[in-house]
Design a protein around this nucleic acid. Structure first.
Length: 560
DNA sequence: ACGCTCGCATCAGGTGGGAAACGG
DNA sequence: CCGTTTCCCACCTGATGCGAGCGT
């Protein structure tokens, strides 16, 4: 169906490239001039319902691989996720957690998950243009559990999320015939810093902010920045981590493994023009490049000093985070990442106020108060209907959903992510990557969350420790932190389009060395005080994860 | 004199809106 | 005819270059 499965691409690294890489430390973001071989076969396209934390009483041992495998690993060599994506049970059930021991694998954290969820609630749409359009929200991950010295290629693949063609009708997305499975073009975006060491990947956020989506098949072979999609089709991004040799070549002689991670909340429908005004508004509200479309910007984004919980990181007079204090009192747990961060007047005074779209009224929101405490799980494409895009919002996310009210329903609003710098290299880098995730959080400890395995994680992913610590802490408590499940396969079999694609990537990376590709890669240096944070943290378990600066809640799942 | 920092201007690129063009 | 796609526009962000000011 997708090109991914029909093509066999091979990347051959040159000796020269390999030598160059050796000369420059991988951690410095040296050139990934060498590529890896990818075959079409045996591609591990397992679905990983990750970004969902278990509720109280969750036992990693009961939600392990066995269940996962039986549920999601069937027939996944197609590059299309919908066949196995039947959504058996809740997301929790599908949640796969690495087990301790030799089989320990990487864990992936979707950094800006809260923002993704915001969009997901309205069915995320991504513009595709001939010249390519960046994703927003973009994919940003934290990775843990890798071998510090081993080399990995990290890349994103975008596959069909379901077998349907979609249409926006009557204020909501409805299926409209079968998806065109014959689409061609590149579906893979290799992180510019690939290959690189596990230490490198774990040191910082892995951002795919420069990934572009296009509907121009002709560009698929000329640039690695583009992923070719079809309009009005639903897609699911996947993160793949492939262990390679130091040269960046996949070593077929060793038990090379591919670990794949799928975050359902990152599903989106590719469009050439926005269909849902709510999505449009979310984009405008959260994407700095769209600030020009914000109405009453000066008045909206300026508030009395006492209303500001967070100083503007950009020093922009416009960039303020408006957070009504009352809100915090009432909802200390899931502050703003799921509360509309825009000032209230936006919705009542602005001409652009978003009408209450039916598309917004998912069962959760319609359910009114009940959603606050429990949100029924939404299956992923099991029936091929519009429900397939919905995430399982487990009970612990009740407040999430409650705060994810449609614009027209929201009674309180807070501004968050837009006040943060867009690019990771900003002073608020780690938060910016989250875009309303970490950025949105204010340090508010909720000690006794029913589902929280560790009440006070103080160390997040390395980069989160300092700047992002408060945020990640929030996220941990709010269930926003996510550990993607994993799978492994022999001889990765991704269908990377062309070798030149990879070469282009390498070239680009070379050019961005001075900045270490501030956008594509990590945001900023990860905090080094993790260790101290970890050590003083009573709840911090000293396992493999903790040694890498993993937060307590993280290690909880990785090392049950 | 030299190096560093800061502020300003400029430029490239990203954004959604809207109208026109396209295609079934 | 209608839905979709393309193109252009104004606005914004971030990177970069340049010169002024300051300290050594």
């Amino acid at each position: 169906m997708l090109d991914g499965e029909g093509e066999t691409s091979s990347f051959s690294s040159t000796k020269q490239a390999a030598e160059e890489r050796r000369k420059s430390p991988a951690v410095d973001g040296d050139d990934p001039t060498a590529g890896s071989r990818y075959t079409e076969h045996g591609y591990p396209s397992s679905i990983h319902l990750s970004s969902i934390l278990p509720p109280a009483g969750f036992s990693p041992t009961t939600a392990g691989r066995t269940h996962f495998s039986s549920t999601y690993q069937l027939g996944q060599s197609t590059g299309c996720i919908y066949p196995p994506y039947t959504g058996s049970g809740s997301a929790l059930g599908g949640m796969t957690l690495p087990t301790a021991g030799p089989g320990m694998r990487a864990q992936v954290y979707l950094c800006n998950r809260p923002l993704w969820l915001k969009f997901h609630r309205h069915q995320t749409e991504m513009i595709i243009t001939k010249q390519g359009r960046r994703m927003f929200p973009f994919l940003s991950f934290n990775i843990a559990g890798l071998n510090l010295t081993a080399h990995y290629n990290v890349f994103v693949e975008v596959v069909l999320a379901d077998p349907n063609h979609w249409r926006f009708q009557g204020g909501k997305w409805v299926t409209c015939g079968k998806a065109d499975n014959s689409s061609q073009g590149n579906k893979v975006y290799i992180h510019p810093e690939s290959p690189n060491t596990g230490a490198h990947w774990m040191r910082q956020e892995i951002s795919f902010s420069k990934l572009k989506l296009t509907n121009n098949k002709g560009t698929s072979h000329s640039t690695s920045q583009m992923i070719v999609l079809q309009s009005l089709h639903k897609y699911q991004p996947r993160l793949h981590i492939i262990e390679v040799t130091e040269d960046g070549v996949e070593d077929i002689n060793s038990d090379v493994k591919t670990q794949s991670f799928t975050f359902p909340e990152t599903q989106f429908i590719a469009v050439t023009a926005y269909q849902n005004t709510d999505i449009t508004q979310l984009k405008i509200d959260h994407n700095p490049f769209a600030k020009g479309f914000r109405d009453n910007y000066d008045s909206i984004y300026t508030a009395p000093e006492n209303d500001r919980l967070t100083p503007s990181p950009t020093d922009s007079p416009r960039a303020h985070q408006l957070v009504p204090g009352a809100r915090y009192t009432m909802q200390p747990l899931f502050q703003d990442q799921f509360v509309n961060n825009l000032p209230q007047n936006r919705f009542y005074n602005s001409e652009r106020a978003v009408p209450q779209s039916h598309s917004l009224l998912s069962p959760q929101t319609e359910d009114g108060a009940s959603q606050r405490w429990f949100v029924t799980s939404m299956q992923q494409g099991g029936n091929g209907t519009s429900t397939s895009n919905k995430l399982d919002l487990t009970p612990y996310e009740g407040d999430y959903s409650s705060s994810l009210l449609p614009y027209g329903i929201k009674s309180l609003s807070m501004q968050t992510s837009h006040a943060l710098s867009y690019y990771p290299d900003s002073p608020f880098t780690t938060m910016s990557a989250g875009w309303g995730s970490r950025a949105a959080y204010q340090r508010k400890v909720t000690p006794s969350l029913p589902w929280s395995p560790r009440p006070s994680p103080t160390a997040g992913f390395p980069e989160c420790s300092e700047k992002g610590k408060p945020q990640i802490e929030e996220e941990a408590n709010s269930g926003g932190s996510l550990i993607a499940s994993w799978t492994e396969t022999q001889a990765s079999t991704l269908s990377l389009d062309k070798a030149d694609v990879y070469a282009t990537t390498c070239k680009r990376r070379r050019l961005s060395l001075n900045g270490l590709s501030t956008e594509d890669s990590a945001s900023d240096i990860k905090c080094e005080d993790l260790v101290s944070a970890a050590t003083n943290g009573s709840s911090y378990s000293k396992d493999a994860s903790s040694s890498k600066g993993m937060p307590a809640y993280y290690s909880f799942y990785t090392n049950p």
